[in-house]
Design a protein around this nucleic acid. Structure first.
Length: 821
RNA sequence: GCCGGGGUGGCGGAAUGGCAGACGCGGCGGAUUCAAAAUCCGCAGUCCGCAAGGGCGUGGGGGUUCGAGUCCCCCCCUCGGCACCA
């Protein structure tokens, strides 16, 4: 069979996508789980921006890797879906009057086409959409399951509020005091909200990270460890003077207890009102009020002078009985520990700062363990220091000192060892429309009542007023008929919860649903899930290190405890792709330098587009897009096409007169070896470089004269398979033209002969004292002795070395000889 | 401020402690062509030199080593994470 003169990507790619679809190539039989491999990418949010280059850079290389695994005999499952709930669709509705369901439907339809154009092997029979009632009924089911476990609760708390989005946000969604979505400054509000008790799982989330060591990126493990923020210390009770209450504080430095010179309550601390002396109520009240209303970004601004006021109350140090004043200051956070601290200005820089500004005394009770002197005028906070001025504890240092103090506190019943985490409970309610309704009702008589499972899904009402001013309420409040309902418990009048769930709840379990997509009796089938999961390879951006990736781990652990899954880490391996820049700049709409995938795919075809992205740089680091650069790949494809066309058009000769085959065969086997190794490690860029070299060698071999027919056939066959993960459409077309059996996507990955891959002769550098002075060609297996002799016999080397004595001679066979004089 | 990643030709980027710059873009020269496009071949870190050859070169400074882009210490720049968490 002969090939047309030129490769027409648009025709060929459409043809093979149609063929793959007709043959059901991408449909995975989940009942056959031998050698299973789930290759998952983070599903996209279907916005009006459609799939951008970042999505392509996530999906296309991931698919190439999955195709490689498939050819190596793995039973690969590549699912795809849409994280379709969320704010942008709703904001679009507010601005343009298009219902979110409508705009989402349109976006999904368009994006589906883009996804198909990539040429991925997604199993569309298991496509899912989180805004589909058949999906979100199970998100609601999950909420109820957490409720029954006591892991979902409603509480009034100071929460993050984004005024522009008109909703509360989880801690994880606030970045530098700003909303991660719209970058507005976030304020604190005291509101009653729904939380998931993720802090109950802090220790397990931390412990699980150890099992992922080496299988997840180290920086992501580190980010999660920091985010969870375990710290060991003690809770210490200070008796208030003239009052029955005790003031409990958390400290990681019980060894500094003799250095306490004052106490501080967070402005939101419940004791502030009770303990403040009447004469100071006005001042303290005003201060607490002001602090509470401050934006986080201001309150947490670094370098800001620490403010605070004295409450007039005093507390007793449980170890030395000393009276210390109790202050209120906003540098103490309400949400951490007990919301109160003991202040040790001698050994804590923050307390030192505050004490200096408010005339409070500084006392030294820790000194350097090595006998040196701590610098004056600043806090000495080295935890290895030795206790001084601390009565019976003097001389103790570090962990031992802290342990002894804690034991003494416990003995006296005024303190105990404690561990606190930086992690906060996950705030999951949102005052927005386009999300899964929280399935509870509020009944005047029964309180908060769960909607029974038979009542799921609680459907989102279609008719709501997005424009109505709503204060702190969700737009669902405007769907009055929907809000009014009967209490599932008593049958009386009740009102539906109008808040919806954070979309991160939707995405915290989607990977489970893929395995049972379409099941209406279950969220997922444990038997199937346990056979196919954990996900073998999860590929997505690093921006979810402390959001989605923590939430999904938490939910999986909860589901394990509930007996719904048999594992507790959902993602066995994780890989973060890098970022694509353009001519050195980050791509952004405001810069106007965004690469439109559709335009380039239209011009060059998706194989070329995909390969260029993979060629630009290493997958983990990303790369720099250059409009010219893609021509290199375009030429490579054209060259490859020509190679096959030439080889097929002019049948090669037999061995008689065949030339250059030895070197070509070596290149062939070396290429298979290198490409295989590179693909295993996601080194797509160097793998493609190898393919380019191989195509070059084979082309020149053809130029040189008739080539042995069986070798040529073998070379074209192996190269064809090597190309398949990178340029799947092109590879199918070549496979068909060569009369290959079935499809190349189903063909086994080629093997190689390591012996044949080795070069018979290598160039060895001869150095004189570390500088390369000559190169010699030697048999690859030349031993040390031979190399030594050849090096010393080399004319130029003899000149350079001359009469000088040789101090040392280093021989690295196959590499170099270094003569040190 | 703390923690982590990274600084390599004009550009994107390669290099288990062993010949720095694979592969590609752009550039230059040649072949082909009436000419151009396309294609193929060649040159190309930088400085000195007609050349042979040599000096200098992986952000800067020091060190370990026969040998350092790679390992160690200090510094600069840059990107990312965290940021009053007691």
């Amino acid at each position: 069979m002969t090939l047309p003169e030129d490769y027409d990507a648009s025709v060929v790619e459409a043809k093979w996508r149609r063929r793959w679809r007709e043959l059901g190539v991408a449909t995975t039989d989940l009942s056959r789980h031998r050698d299973k491999m789930v290759v998952l990418v983070m599903f996209p949010y279907p916005s009006g921006d459609r799939l951008h280059i970042g999505h392509w850079y996530n999906f296309a290389p991931a698919d190439s890797w999955a195709r490689f695994q498939r050819m190596r005999g793995r039973n690969v499952f590549e699912p795809m879906g849409y994280d379709a709930f969320g704010l942008p669709a709703e904001n679009y509705a507010i601005q343009h009057g298009v219902h979110p369901a409508e705009s989402t439907r349109a976006n999904v339809a368009y994006i589906r086409g883009q996804l198909e154009a990539i040429g991925t092997l997604y199993d569309w029979s298991r496509e899912l959409n989180t805004s589909d009632p058949e999906y979100y009924r199970w998100t609601q089911w999950l909420f109820l399951a957490l409720r029954r476990r006591g892991l979902a609760y409603r509480a009034r708390a100071p929460v993050n509020w984004c005024p522009a989005c008109g909703t509360v946000l989880a801690n994880e969604q606030v970045e530098e005091g700003r909303c991660e979505r719209c970058e507005s400054e976030v304020t604190k509000k005291d509101l009653e909200q729904w939380f998931f008790r993720i802090t109950d799982y802090a220790e397990r989330l931390l412990a699980g990270l150890d099992t992922l060591e080496g299988r997840w990126p180290a920086k992501t493990l580190l980010a999660q460890r920091h985010w969870i923020g375990r710290s060991e210390g003690a809770e210490v009770d200070f008796q208030l003077v003239g009052r029955p209450e005790r003031l409990s504080i958390f400290t990681t430095r019980p060894d500094t207890l003799y250095g306490v010179t004052y106490m501080v309550l967070a402005p939101e601390h419940p004791l502030v009102e009770t303990i403040t002396e009447p004469a100071r109520r006005g001042e303290v009240g005003r201060y607490a009020e002001a602090a509470r209303g401050m934006r986080d970004i201001d309150r947490e601004a670094l370098g800001r002078e620490k403010t605070g006021v004295f409450t007039g109350a005093w507390a007793l140090n449980p170890l030395n009985g000393e009276r210390v004043p109790v202050w209120v200051a906003d540098y103490v956070l309400a949400g951490y520990g007990t919301g109160a601290i003991m202040a040790v200005p001698g050994h804590d820089p923050r307390d030192h700062d505050f004490a200096a500004g408010h005339g409070l005394p500084v006392r030294r009770v820790i000194e350097p363990a090595d006998g040196s002197r701590a610098p004056e005028g600043q806090a000495y906070s080295d935890p290895s220091g030795r206790m001084v001025g601390s009565g019976p504890f003097d001389g103790l240092a570090g962990d031992e000192a802290r342990g002894r103090v804690v034991r003494e506190l416990e003995r006296r019943g005024v303190g105990r060892g404690r561990v606190h985490y930086r992690l906060r409970d996950w705030l999951i309610s949102r005052q927005r429309y386009w999300g899964a309704p929280i399935p509870v009702v509020h009944c005047g008589r029964c309180g908060v009542v769960d909607v029974p499972e038979e009542g799921l899904p609680v459907l989102l009402p279609e008719r709501v007023d997005f424009q109505a001013p709503r204060g702190e309420r969700s737009p669902l409040i405007t769907a009055q008929e929907w809000v009014r309902t009967a209490c599932p418990a008593c049958g009386g009048e009740a009102r539906r919860e109008v808040d919806t769930m954070d979309t991160f709840v939707d995405s915290s379990w989607y990977f489970l649903r893929y395995l049972s997509a379409g099941r209406s009796d279950l969220p997922f089938d444990r038997e199937v899930v346990d056979r196919w999961l954990p996900v073998d390879m999860y590929i997505g951006g690093p921006e979810h290190a402390t959001k989605h990736l923590i939430y999904a781990r938490f939910i999986t652990m909860v589901l394990k405890d509930l007996g719904w899954v048999g594992f507790e880490e959902p993602f066995a391996r994780l890989f973060h792709q890098g970022l694509i820049t353009r001519d050195g700049d980050k791509m952004s709409k405001s810069r106007g330098n965004v690469v439109s995938p559709d335009a380039f795919v239209g011009r060059y075809g998706s194989d070329v587009f995909r390969m260029y992205m993979m060629f630009m740089g290493s997958f983990a680091d990303g790369g720099d897009w250059n409009d010219q650069g893609i021509t290199g790949i375009d030429r490579f494809v054209a060259r490859t096409w020509r190679l096959y066309r030439r080889a097929l058009d002019s049948p090669a000769s037999t061995a008689e007169g065949a030339s250059g085959v030895v070197e070509a065969r070596r290149a062939l086997h070396a290429s298979v070896q290198a490409v295989t190794r590179d693909l295993e490690g996601f080194a797509f860029n160097t793998a493609i470089a190898r393919l380019m070299e191989l195509v070059g060698v084979l082309g020149r071999t053809l130029d040189a004269g008739p080539v042995d027919a069986s070798f040529l056939d073998d070379a074209l066959d192996r190269l064809n398979r090597l190309l398949a993960p990178f340029a799947p459409h092109l590879a199918e077309e070549l496979w068909e033209a060569r009369g290959g059996e079935g499809l190349v996507v189903d063909a086994p990955w080629p093997d190689y002969d390591a012996e044949l891959a080795r070069a018979p002769e290598v160039e060895v550098a001869i150095q004189v004292t570390g500088k390369v002075r000559a190169r010699i060609r030697v048999p690859a297996d030349a031993d040390e002795e031979t190399l030594k002799e050849m090096a010393l016999a080399h004319e130029r080397i003899r000149e350079l070395v001359g009469e000088r004595p040789i101090r040392k001679l280093v021989v690295v066979p196959g590499r170099l000889v270094n003569i040190v004089v």
